[in-house]
Amino acid sequence: MEKNLLNSPQPEVNVIDSLFAEMVLDNALLNFRKEKIHEKIDQSLRDRNKSEFLRYTEELKNIS
């Protein structure tokens, strides 16, 4: 049977692991969002749509 001690470092490890996992997930979501915005910028260039291009480049600047 496992003992739960008050001075056990286990909760600290769980908090650190949880924070690390959250950072990895946040980074993955940010990279995914940037990739999608890049695709929209490329499409706006192909469509020669200046207003969409400006909107998406501004959005990319705001999240970078």
Results as ranks from 00 to 15, higher is better:
51 S>Y: 13
49 N>A: 00
61 K>I: 13
23 M>Q: 09
10 Q>D: 06
48 R>D: 02
37 I>K: 02
28 A>P: 04
8 S>K: 02
13 V>D: 05
17 D>H: 08
9 P>N: 02
1 M>P: 14
4 N>L: 12
15 V>D: 09
28 A>Y: 05
42 D>Y: 00
29 L>V: 06
55 R>N: 07
9 P>Y: 00
22 E>Y: 13
27 N>R: 13
9 P>S: 02
7 N>C: 07
59 E>Y: 08
53 F>I: 01
16 I>Y: 10
26 D>Q: 07
8 S>W: 03
46 R>H: 05
47 D>I: 00
2 E>A: 15
37 I>R: 02
61 K>R: 14
58 E>I: 13
15 V>E: 09
56 Y>G: 05
8 S>H: 03
39 E>Q: 08
11 P>K: 01
23 M>D: 15
5 L>P: 13
36 K>T: 04
19 L>C: 12
35 E>M: 12
54 L>N: 12
58 E>Y: 14
20 F>K: 11
26 D>E: 13
47 D>F: 00
45 L>A: 02
37 I>C: 03
43 Q>E: 00
43 Q>S: 00
13 V>T: 07
31 N>T: 06
5 L>W: 13
52 E>D: 08
7 N>Y: 07
2 E>V: 15
13 V>Q: 06
1 M>L: 12
63 I>G: 04
14 N>S: 12
4 N>G: 14
14 N>M: 10
46 R>C: 02
56 Y>T: 05
36 K>M: 05
23 M>R: 08
9 P>D: 00
24 V>Q: 06
26 D>V: 06
3 K>V: 10
22 E>C: 08
12 E>K: 14
20 F>G: 11
18 S>G: 13
45 L>M: 05
59 E>T: 07
16 I>E: 08
49 N>Y: 01
17 D>K: 06
